[in-house]
Design a binder for these strands. Structure first.
Lengths: 216, 216
DNA sequence: AAGTTCGGTGTACGTTCGTACACTGAAAGC
DNA sequence: GCTTTCAGTGTACGAACGTACACCGAACTT
């Protein structure tokens, strides 16, 4: 049973703000943010168009808020991947990472979908925000890689380059998983194939890394 | 001096069609195709809006035409990369490939820009067309890789996986080159850094490939 | 209890959009 | 030469867009 005490003003505002973010995310499922109109969002939320401005000054700044929000769940995923050494074999790291990625893509479809779209097509400021967040991911990965035997003797530059490669491959994997989800009839087998490919690719890259000689 | 003979009807039609494609491509430089209106294109070309329908039945089918056109130049690039063995060392292959990529991105900016945008944000049919073309590229790369010592003993599946990885990395490199071109003040050094990264990544992947044991 | 703040309303505007329809005039076909 | 074809014209419409402006009423402040 819900307590029926009257809503405070900030609560109500926050609730509407959430509704706007959710509505925008839903509308972004099948077209880019630039193609979403203020009026559509307002109608979806159930407010009058001009009320939108009480929360965001433009669709673009709504986009920036959605980027922040999306990367909260992404960071949660990364924390999940690197949770302290339950597994230490290379195979274990690879399998665990890919499985975690799959789980989070399923769980936060619309966020990943939004990022994948706007990464290439959004307004400049949104693209830059996404690029920046991905760069942070690469840096975090680089510091993790630096603890592995082999890469621990590399130059910082080589570490950067390797994590860029890995993150790129994982972003691509996520995008493939997303588009496989658009056709639910054969989704399971498609997901299996995509994750298997991702696992193999990670292994190939790691083998390359183990045989790499960093020369400064 | 231009010969002044009267234009034939098909010539004139083709000329207008080209103008429409060029105008659309230009308008796509700073927003996605879905956000480009039929009227904008028509105004840019200098025809009345309804005349657009004499050439395309919708913006979407215009998009498909642009995909075709863009991949003509991309295929030209790939032919260029694989031109018969002037160089045979791994380093030679890598350096040559990356340099060719850079050259073609510069030369066909707007085409690459269009593909990069619509690959993630375009209408479904456009996204599928692009995905299909990229898959063709991966297949061609796979048959090339199959001639290399090492990969020549691989399973078809492993070859597919490796070329998917390489193509993904190259697509990402192209996208980075494109966004570096948006800020002309430091473009040269940015391009140098990006291509250097791409070279290193290709080498890392190839080293992984040389040490890979394909087990069926 | 009186006054202020502010999320949400309702109307109203000028613009731009896609597209329907009837048309024109020059090249193509006979 | 007369007819047909068809790329391009011009007008006209309803719908959707962003946004300006005056307003309301309930939650807050004092």
């Amino acid at each position: 049973m819900t307590t029926n005490r009257p809503e405070t003003r900030v609560e109500r505002k926050e609730r509407t703000r959430r509704a706007i973010l959710d509505a925008a995310l839903a509308l972004c499922e099948d077209s880019s943010l630039a193609a979403v109109s203020l009026r559509q969002v307002a109608k979806e939320v159930g407010i009058v168009p001009t009320a939108f401005y009480r929360h965001f000054e433009s669709i673009e700044s709504l986009g920036l808020a959605l980027v922040d929000e999306s990367f909260v769940s992404l960071r949660a995923m990364l924390r999940d991947v690197r949770r302290p050494g339950v597994v230490t074999t290379f195979s274990g790291i690879v399998d665990g990472s890919v499985e975690t990625l799959l789980r989070h893509v399923r769980q936060h479809r619309s966020h990943f979908l939004f990022i994948a779209r706007e990464r290439g097509a959004g307004p400049l400021s949104v693209r830059e925000a996404i690029r920046h967040e991905i760069e942070l991911c690469e840096r975090e990965l680089a510091t993790d890689l630096a603890r592995l035997p082999g890469p621990d003797k590399w130059t910082a530059e080589d570490l950067r380059v390797l994590s860029n490669l890995i993150v790129t491959a994982m972003v691509s994997t996520a995008e493939q998983l997303l588009s496989s989800g658009a056709r639910p009839e054969a989704q399971q087998s498609a997901e299996k194939e995509i994750t298997e490919t991702a696992r193999t690719q990670l292994r190939m890259v790691l083998i390359g890394a183990l045989n790499w000689e960093s020369r400064p």
